[in-house]
Design a protein around this nucleic acid. Structure first.
Lengths: 224, 224
DNA sequence: CTATTATTAGAGTATATACTCTAGGGAGTC
DNA sequence: GACTCCCTAGAGTATATACTCTAATAATAG
């Protein structure tokens, strides 16, 4: 594998594990057993690495969130959206952590992220429309649907941060993918009151699959 | 005013304005025109300042969220809770920004914040119960109510962060209190489907008062 | 083989930042 | 006046971190 590619992969790993803030370019090069100079040959600076990872993320989520134009959406579709979006979130989870700091220091990222948010909100909105067409949820006025979409976005993008704060006494709180996916439970909670009778049971059963075992604020870090 | 108190007030101001991360102890002492040594005479370290500010915040919100035991809740109560909680959020908004980093570096804060979260979730839950008793919203099974409360918490605590990311092209995005309070609109959106007919109109009218003028992702920073 | 380009090493630097240390001023008390 | 206690000054330090610079080495093209 090319060094450049290795740097990206290694950076992503370290960022996800320890948080971008706690990973220096020296750490990255040390982990790869290359010199700092080498790293800076391939990337002008740390921001460029982050930006490129963000672009990967953007592309991935954009791909996940496409909606078919020729048919309404089903419960299976919805599940697919949730699963894949949370997968993406997991793979690039460092982004949604120190996000504010990242945006503060990179104008490109700031701009792109803003547009990305807009596209995602639109996509969520279209998914709600599709689900209404498919008879899964009630149709709602545009205004309400948009506000709902925004709430979905807030829950999805901040679920990880909540887990980290609500959990454990250790400095390095390790979140599992399973826990992250309990965010799906919270998103489906938002939909509960809008479910049509015909699909209510099915969606509630799906929701149960993501239910946390314990109330979240009582969760302790998994023993090592 | 005592120097100690001045340090707390000044720190809070600077933290809120520029973000905790961008404010050093040297900045604080410079702003106050005192020496760093002086600051460190009053506080052992930066974390101690933050921790004391957090305790103020905790107390404030704890006070805001108390529920009367002798009567059900009204729409006016609900409005009061939302207004005051968002006021508190505004006054200590730096806390909910770099929260993860703050918790990572202070075990006391980590522990306290976790308990604080638990208490807040309980309080939100009790408020929902009170509103159901008061006939404002439908009564819901415990499990659903808890998940709803958690969603409310997620929206409330992350609304500020969303505004900062969704808005403007400037490094230092200035959020107004008015914009922050649009978070109330989002919280009330969560309640819409549960409103009882008798109060539906009233709550929807209340909600309208917090409606953003523009779709949020199109919002530009206010011209200087 | 030679010339050129792409890649790598690794010591070194500029800057920032939380914090320390010593010395002393001012006000009240005996 | 001397003692004590609270408070203050401000130069200085240890450490971290993003990044640079020079030189050397592989890879490739002609």
């Amino acid at each position: 594998m090319k060094t450049r590619e290795k740097i990206l992969l290694c950076s992503l790993d370290l960022f996800n594990e320890r948080g971008e803030r706690n990973v220096t370019t020296n750490h990255i090069s040390a982990e790869l057993a290359i010199s700092p100079g080498n790293l800076y040959y391939h990337f002008r600076n740390k921001s460029d690495i982050i930006y490129e990872l963000f672009q990967q993320y953007e592309q991935l989520v954009g791909y996940y969130l496409t909606t078919p134009e020729d048919r309404p959406l089903t419960v299976a579709d919805m599940r697919g959206y949730l699963e894949s979006v949370f997968d993406g979130l997991w793979s690039y989870r460092f982004l949604h952590r120190d996000l504010e700091h990242l945006l503060e220091n990179d104008a490109r990222l700031r701009q792109d992220y803003r547009e990305f948010t807009g596209r995602c909100l639109d996509a969520i909105n279209r998914i709600f429309e599709g689900l209404a067409e498919g008879g899964v949820i009630q149709s709602q006025p545009e205004e309400l649907r948009q506000a709902m979409s925004l709430n979905v976005w807030l829950v999805v993008t901040n679920w990880m941060a909540f887990l980290k704060t609500a959990q454990g006494n250790n400095r390095q709180v390790e979140i599992t993918k399973r826990q992250l996916k309990q965010g799906i439970y919270q998103v489906l909670t938002l939909e509960v009151p809008y479910l049509m009778p015909a699909y209510r049971g099915e969606v509630l059963a799906l929701r149960e699959q993501y239910r946390p075992e314990l109330p979240l604020t009582m969760m302790e870090p998994a023993p090592a």
